[in-house]
């Protein structure tokens, strides 16, 4: 897979998938529903989730900010890891995607996770 396809999944960072047959939801792109293998699915926008874990990464690839605060968040059954705009989050925080940032230098601008009550 080239880096171009990886960046250009044609998806917004806050978009997830919903199966048209069994209504299962998932985030990480695949060709079929992981539960019922249906190839019929659509995308939807993630709204509010909960922070399950986070880490501040100091050693990052050359085109990624340092420090890179990453959060593991649950939007219902959908879980994902994404960059956070808050430096000091807490497990259990409510989070949503907001803002426009270059997640990798020179890449398309995308939203980061931010605390719903924060100023992020």
């Amino acid at each position: 897979m080239t880096r171009g396809t990886r960046d250009a999944d044609g998806l917004r960072v806050d978009e997830a998938f919903r199966c048209g047959d069994c209504e299962n939801e998932w985030y990480y792109t695949r060709n079929r529903c992981p539960d019922c293998q249906s190839a019929t699915f659509s995308t939807y926008r993630l709204r509010e989730g909960e922070l399950v874990a986070y880490t501040t990464v100091n050693v990052t690839p050359p085109d990624v900010r340092s420090a890179n605060v990453l959060g593991l968040a649950a939007f219902g059954d959908v879980r994902l890891i994404a960059q956070m705009s808050d430096d000091d989050p807490e497990v259990g925080d409510s989070v949503r995607f907001a803002g426009q940032y270059e997640l990798r230098e020179g890449g398309e601008k995308r939203a980061r996770l931010t605390g719903v009550d924060g100023d992020g």
Partner: peptide
Amino acid sequence: HGREYVQGITLPSFGGLAAG
């Protein structure tokens, strides 16, 4: 995964999340 790579995730990032 491509959607992980976009976020600048490295292997130690997963380790940090799991360790915490």
